[in-house]
């Protein structure tokens, strides 16, 4: 069975129509548009600095082949010359004239038009793009610290979100009290206020609480996610009341009921909330940008932003660190794709 017939098969064994082929074409183009930039980023992140500046760009990560030639102070990049056998080391290029040296004795010097020579390259993964920023400080850029800060903000904020949201969701789903509707309205209200319209006073509040330029200042204002309350409440509404009554009769306190019954039974919802929260916090940008001042408090996103704003952008490091920042999110997505898309489809929030 050929690929075309396989792709063309549809439910009921009907043959693919023109519309179907249009759909496949659409998918193919969209796939390239989405995948290519990311793939390009990953490929580029493994290229040596000299390779990144090649124009037009090369596709796969390569490194120039270098020739050790007797009498030369340093290795020379290898080139072939149109119409001549063998490989030559490029010693200099002045205007349109290239000066090359034969690696074999008697080390003949060749002068040719620059357009007639072709560089030799071999596949090469420049791992140092990753290892160097992670082991040595690049001027003010301490990427291991940024990584740690990002992880700290993400993990602490997620734990806080999960605990606070499940507690609130529990109260709003399992208890009947007169002000319940009022609290639900407050949640809706909080949902409708984007953080972006309260930046200035939020900055004041954070400042007064002595949280300015601390990681807690990036964590606390975003941890009380109203979306999370809804997610948890909707899920907890589906738990049978009998389980809680049975535990009450068995002598459980409300606190025990929450931790020993509501929390374990709500694990699917808690997992969705935790995943979403990790992604939100890992990617947060504007608020940390405002609240985190000194570079030792930067999260990875702030570090990347500042690094690319430098006068001389060190693309080889920048791309590698960008890939690093994609890694956790991509891994989470690869393994938990269903619960993420499911959770977003049910809450209508991202």
């Amino acid at each position: 069975m050929g690929v075309a017939t396989f792709l063309g098969r549809r439910a009921g064994g009907r043959k693919a129509s023109f519309t179907d082929w249009l759909c496949y074409a659409y998918l193919a183009v969209a796939f390239l548009t989405i995948a290519l930039p990311v793939v390009w980023l990953v490929l580029s992140s493994f290229k040596p600095e000299s390779e990144l500046t090649q124009y037009p760009p090369t596709i796969l990560p390569n490194a120039p082949v270098l020739l050790e030639i007797e009498g030369q102070p340093r290795p020379l990049p290898a080139y072939t010359i149109e119409g001549r056998e063998g490989v030559f080391g490029l010693r200099a290029q002045v205007g349109r004239i290239a000066v090359l040296i034969d690696p074999h004795p008697p080390h003949e010097q060749v002068r040719v038009e620059a357009t007639t020579i072709t560089r030799l390259a071999e596949p090469h993964l420049e791992v140092s793009n990753y290892t160097e920023p992670l082991t040595a400080r690049l001027s003010a850029f301490d990427f291991p610290l940024f990584l740690y800060n990002s992880a700290f903000v993400t993990i602490v904020a997620t734990i806080l979100s999960v605990v606070m949201n499940s507690m609130a969701g529990y109260a709003l789903s399992r208890y009947r009290f007169r002000s319940r509707m009022g609290f639900l309205l407050l949640v809706v209200f909080a949902l409708m206020i984007p953080q972006t319209v309260i930046l200035v006073p939020l900055f004041l509040v954070v400042n007064s609480l002595a949280l300015y330029d601390t990681l807690w200042g990036a964590i606390l204002p975003v941890a009380a996610t109203p979306v999370g309350i809804f997610l948890m409440r909707q899920y907890m509404l589906t738990l049978p009341e009998d389980l809680f009554e049975a535990a009450r009769i068995d002598g459980g306190s409300e606190w025990q009921l929450f931790w020993r019954i509501a929390v374990p039974l709500s694990m699917p919802a808690i997992a969705v909330l935790a995943i979403l929260s990790v992604i939100w916090r890992w990617n947060d940008f504007l608020w940390p940008l405002i609240v985190l001042q000194r570079s030792e408090n930067y999260t990875l996103q702030l570090g990347l932003n500042a690094f690319q704003g430098e006068f001389e952008v060190q693309w080889h490091y920048l791309l590698a660190m960008a890939v690093l920042s994609l890694l956790p999110v991509t891994l989470i997505f690869a393994f938990l794709q269903k619960s993420i898309t499911g959770g977003i489809a049910t809450t209508g929030m991202k």
């Binding site: 049978p240 009998d242 389980l243 009554e245 535990a247 009769i249 068995d250 025990q256 020993r260 039974l265």
Partner: peptide, 25 residues
């Protein structure tokens, strides 16, 4: 002690844990 129409068994616990839950609490 009460036995519910739905049995109200905790789905995340084993039979042993279910039966000992009250004492554990």
């Amino acid at each position: 002690a009460m036995v519910f129409q739905s049995y109200a068994l905790y789905p995340h616990l084993t039979v042993r844990q279910n039966m000992g839950f009250g004492l554990e609490l």
